[in-house]
């Protein structure tokens, strides 16, 4: 029994000790690493949390802050808009009620609200929805009967269908401007996101992850807006729907995604002229950034 024999025996026998698999799960681990790094500071084995690199940490904080502010602002705007819309509905009923009680040939014409509305519509067909989207919507204009706007939801019984927009909301300028401001800010955010997406480095996967996080928040807001009276506007709705599609694609862009995935998003942006339509929808001037 020699020492050398034992060492040889031990080395040979120890090869079975915690024997690793033949194949290292490289790609799986790399994806996990990218995902964890994109998620921000984390606790690691050995204690303590790791800070991000200074430059990137500063950048991501700004983005997260901006996104959080946008979400808060949008939620407040939608909330105020809905509250205003709710408080506006009785006046719409009152309009319909008074129309029924009146001559019946000219519904609402006797009320100051519809008189104003009718006068405007005669020229520009401007209709505001129940929250006061303030958008020009020619195709939503209900058919006129005898020179008077005929409310689509009015069934002649003096009731207004629950899902129909009110006849007139010019009496509620607060709700109108709340939705207007909220929508413009949301579209400005979306434009900023898409601009960042188009100008980012193709190899910067961490940037992709941050954009994904930002896009996720904007996607929620877009869906909120699609579910709000803002989407009643025939011009805004397609824009919001196209925006939703692009945001979904960006959200689904994993850190390991291929250039083809990114190209598909670029293609959607180009084909649907999303950027141009976004910029057109956002008014220039102080309101944009405010």
């Amino acid at each position: 029994m020699t020492e050398d024999n034992f060492e040889e025996f031990l080395k040979k026998a120890a090869q079975s000790y915690n024997a690793p698999p033949a194949r290292t799960p490289r790609d799986e681990m790399w994806s996990a690493i990218q995902a964890q790094r994109a998620a921000g500071p984390r606790v690691i084995y050995g204690g303590g949390s790791l800070p991000q690199r200074p430059a990137r940490r500063f950048g991501s904080r700004i983005w997260i802050g901006a996104a959080a502010a946008a979400v808060l602002l949008l939620a407040t705007g939608v909330g105020v808009g809905r509250w205003s819309a709710r408080s506006n509905r009785p006046s719409a009923n009152a309009v319909v009620g008074s129309a029924k009680a009146g001559s019946g040939a000219n519904e609402g014409a006797g009320t100051p609200d519809t008189a104003v509305s009718g006068g405007t519509n005669a020229v520009a067909s401007t209709q505001t929805d129940d929250a006061g989207g303030g958008e020009t919507s020619p195709s939503r204009e209900p058919p006129r009967i005898g020179g008077t706007r005929r409310p689509a939801a009015f069934d002649g019984t003096g009731k207004v269908a629950l899902d129909a927009p009110p006849l007139n909301t010019t009496s509620n300028p607060n709700g109108n401007s709340a939705y207007q401001i909220t929508t413009v800010r949301h579209l400005s955010e979306a434009e900023a996101l898409l601009t960042s997406f188009r100008t980012r480095s193709a190899a910067d996967q961490q940037m992709d992850a941050q954009l994904g996080s930002w896009a996720r928040q904007l996607l929620s807001n877009t869906r909120l807006l699609l579910d709000s009276p803002v989407a009643n506007d025939p011009q805004r709705r397609p824009l919001l729907e196209d925006l939703e599609l692009v945001l979904v694609q960006i959200v689904q862009l994993s850190p390991g995604s291929t250039p083809q995935d990114r190209e598909m998003i670029e293609k959607t942006l180009r084909q649907d002229h999303v950027m141009t339509r976004l910029r057109t929808a956002i008014p220039a001037g102080p309101q944009r950034g405010s």
Partner: peptide, 21 residues
């Protein structure tokens, strides 16, 4: 990491944490 841990999941965690750090 696998030799020290004897467990695939732990070895992956340790390897990932190593590269992240």
């Amino acid at each position: 990491a696998f030799r020290l841990a004897g467990d695939d999941e732990l070895a992956r965690d340790f390897t990932q944490a190593t590269f992240i750090r």
